[in-house]
Every structure is written in C-alpha cells, then in structure tokens.
Amino acid sequence: MTGTEIALIGAALAVGLAGIGSAIGVGIVGQSAAGLVTEDPDKFGQTLLLQALPGTQGIYGLLAGFIIMQNIGIIGDELLELTVPQGYAFLMAAIPIAIVGLVSGIYQGRVSASAVGLVAKRPEELGKGIVYAVMVETYAVLALLATIMLLFGIPL
C-alpha cells in the first residue's frame, strides 16, 4: 500500500466510525423523542435539540477526514505522493476522533434519550438535560483536538 492509501484509511475511519457513533446516538434519542411526541406534539422543538446533540461526533469525524483529504490533496490542488511512514502518521492521527467519536456518540445518545424523559416531565429543565449530555461530548472534543493537533503536526 502506498502512503496515500494508508492516509485515506485514516480519513475513512474518522468519518466512518465517528459517523456510526453519531448515527446510533441520534437514533436512540430519536426513538424516545418520537415516543414523547406522540403524547405531546409541542415538545418537538425541544426534543429535536436533544437529538442534535449526539450528532456532533459525526461532524467532528467529517472534519478530521476533511483535513486529511485537504492535506494530501484529494480536495484542491494536486494529489501528494506520501511515504508509507507519512501515511501511517495520518492514520494514527485519525484514530482518536474515530474511536472516541464512536463510543461517545453512543453514550451521549443514551444520556440525551434520558434527557428526553426529563423534558417530558419537566420541560423547564431542558438546560440541565443538555448539560448532562455535553459532559459526554467533552471527550469527543478533546479527541478532535488531539486529532487536529496531530494532523497539523505531520511534516509533509
């Protein structure tokens, strides 16, 4: 495999795994939200907000994948010929957001789904439900940060 191909695996993992995490997370919240909205259609806005929360991991993954694609020239000017070690560097840089995005997306989905239950009984406490969900997202943000710092640090 060429270095470029290995780097592309990194991009694929970042987008794919973090995206899976978000998809599962958003799915979990959507199920409980739909249940609540059958009872009370006016909660749609609030629950949609909660459903959006676990969606960020997928965006972070896409972001990491996008930076990789840009750095190796898939998007934009011309495709760079990477050495194999360079390729592995990109792959490794993608790992934090790929793994943490996958897991934190699912768990943030669970917390948000519980927050849907919270909103069902106490709509005025939406803020607290969001804060609980955001505590989980912290780690996705940190992983994204690590990935970005790694990506910017790779010498080309």
Binding site: L62, I67, G76, V141, L142, L144, L145, I148
Partner: peptide
Amino acid sequence: VLSYSRLLALGLASVVIATAINAMGEM
C-alpha cells in the same frame, strides 16, 4: 485548565466546517 482546550477545538471546528462547505460549493 485543560478543559479550556475546547475553545480551540470548537473554534477550529466551526471554521473548518465552513471551509469544507465552501470547498464543496466550489467543486
């Protein structure tokens, strides 16, 4: 203190996603 690194991460995220949207538009 380390928790404040999210300021950087979120700042980068919003700008880089915007850049990505622009790049897609350009394509």
